[in-house]
Write a protein that binds this DNA or RNA. Structure first.
Length: 487
RNA sequence: GGCGGCAUAGCCAAGUGGCUAAGGCAGUGGUCUGCAAAACCAUUAUUCCCCAGUUCGACUCUGGGUGCCGCCUCCA
């Protein structure tokens, strides 16, 4: 099967064709390190984590680079506010970012380059652009000459005339054209600076990615990713810089994911309506967040709400519960398992193929999750109906289905815990909140069961109500009465 | 103003030129239970924003309209 990916550049899904057989070079724009990351960043990192894991699962060697922007206007401003250096500030938030990534269960990129560690590469690239007349110096700044690049606007589907008509561009006398963007900026006194042929200054925002991508992947590479908001101007400008400097196509496939919204508005620092990863993880597990994120296509806007998170949590529990049940099936149960209907059997044995087909289709996690839940339902159905005349073969089907589900969910960074432990731990966590001891509960259950034997329903109900007041819910099963803490 | 995207049941959300329009949450009826819970079964869009067109046939393609969102300034 071929993996098909929606390419922003062409607006179509295309078969993935790598430059080198079996190798994917992937560059993702990372964060500007000046604050804690919010759910939007979480979606970005989780989506690309899934993409990398799925590509690797599909047999590709993926070289995954994600940068940090550790010098820019916002960092300078924030550092000044906090009375610290840009270096201290960015180091602190890069550290926080790494902590968040571990909490979320994301793998690390192979390389995490910093802009400030690539100043020579940046300067070289700017010099190449000046040599080719695509850039010019103006009072210590260097600007890219957008008029010189005939493809400017190809990624975002714009043209220079339309954009200038918009007139939302700050007037700057140093520029030949208002749309020209800075490659190098003169530093003001007290700001961080590096030596350059144009005097002391610092790089513009876009140039770092062009320089670092070139360093690690050469002039042309396979996939470049980021949020939709980076399409213009950031990625447009990267293309301009890189292609004008090298004369080669910069990137073959552009992947852009959608935003996380709150009440249908984009979550962003400027709007102040953001929730940090840390805040949200106090309330919900990383796996709940991941399921929530994967319940929609990565390009769709995703609206965050408590209800949506509760739905996702119920989904995670549902899968774990099913897998815990399957894991608990042992040879004693063999005789009780039913023959599995032909239809269910086919459904389960096709699961892996269906999951793969969904993922191959532009990483359609929502559809894949649909298949997983469908399989969970089927497995539950089989486990629940336990008539006689079963064959070991049936147990095998259930165990294999459980393995397929687990293996696939692991690609999404989900179901990484032992299901039985998960169910148990969830229970244990709830235990802390209850106001009655397990011993007392057991005593009351024993008493209730005696009352039930005596057909003293009044007393039995009384005990159940009493336990319910303590959030304890009983389940009368064939093997006796079990209990759980109600969520 | 320019450009791009989206519109599918109470909510979230896949999907396809013709086969039952996935799945989750919530709801309803049932099985089970002394009553419950959990689980399971059944059920919840004769229809996919509106209007035209293409087609033997469109929710899916084309054109127009409406609404929402995003980008054009920093942004994942």
């Amino acid at each position: 099967m071929t993996i098909r990916i929606y390419n922003t550049k062409t607006g179509k899904k295309e078969d993935l064709q790598t430059i080198k057989d079996g190798i994917v070079n992937l560059y993702v724009c990372g964060i500007t390190a000046y604050d804690y990351c919010h759910l939007g960043h979480a979606r970005s990192t989780i989506v690309f984590d899934m993409i990398v894991k799925y590509l690797r699962h599909s047999g590709y060697k993926v070289n995954f680079v994600r940068n940090f922007t550790d010098i820019d206007d916002k960092i300078i401003k924030r550092a000044a506010e906090q009375n610290t250096t840009t270096e201290e500030l960015s180091t602190r938030f890069i550290q926080a970012f790494h902590e968040d990534m571990i909490s979320l269960g994301n793998i690390s990129p192979d390389i995490e380059p910093l802009a400030t560690e690539h100043i020579p590469e940046i300067v070289n690239l700017i010099e190449a652009l000046i040599d080719r007349d695509f850039a010019y110096e103006s009072a210590g700044d260097v600007y890219f000459r957008v008029n010189k690049f005939k493809n400017y606007g190809q990624l975002s589907g714009r043209n220079l005339d339309d954009m200038q008509a918009g007139a939302r561009i700050a007037i700057n006398d140093q520029k030949e054209n208002p749309m020209d963007f800075a490659l190098w900026k003169t530093s003001k006194p007290g700001e961080p600076m590096w030596d350059s042929p144009w005097g002391e200054g610092r790089p513009g925002w876009h140039i770092e990615c062009s320089a670092m991508a070139k360093k690690y992947f050469g002039d042309t590479f396979d996939i470049h990713g980021g949020g939709k908001d980076l399409i213009f101007p950031h990625h447009e400008n990267e293309i301009a810089q890189s292609e004008c400097a090298s004369g080669e196509i910069f990137v073959n496939t552009w992947i852009h994911h959608g935003f996380v919204t709150i009440k249908d508005e984009k979550m962003s620092k400027s709007l102040g309506n953001f929730l940090t990863i840390r805040e949200m993880l106090e309330k919900y597990s990383a796996e709940t967040l991941r399921l929530f994120i994967f319940s929609a296509g990565y390009r769709t806007p995703l609206d965050f709400s408590d209800q949506a998170m509760k739905d996702a949590e119920a989904g995670v529990d549902k899968i774990y519960n099913c897998l815990a049940t399957v894991a608990s099936l042992d040879s004693d149960d063999l005789g009780k398992l039913p023959q599995i209907g032909k239809k269910d059997q086919t459904k389960l044995s096709n699961l892996e193929v269906r999951l793969q087909a969904a993922m191959d289709n532009d990483f359609n996690t929502a559809q894949a999750l649909g298949y997983v839940f469908d399989a969970v339902k089927t497995v539950n159905k089989i486990c629940t109906n336990l008539p006689d005349s079963a064959k070991p073969f049936n147990l095998q089907i259930l165990k294999e289905s459980g393995q397929t589900i687990t293996k696939f969910m692991n690609i999404l960074g989900l179901i990484k815990q032992n299901p039985q432990h998960y169910v148990q731990e969830k229970q244990d966590a709830l235990m802390a909140s209850i106001t009655i001891s397990p011993t007392e509960i057991e005593q009351l259950i024993t008493e209730r069961n005696q009352a039930r034997t005596d057909k003293n329903w009044a007393r039995a109900d009384e005990i159940r109500d009493l336990l319910l007041e303590h959030n304890i819910e009983m389940k009368d099963g064939a093997k006796g009465t079990t209990w759980v803490v109600r969520t």
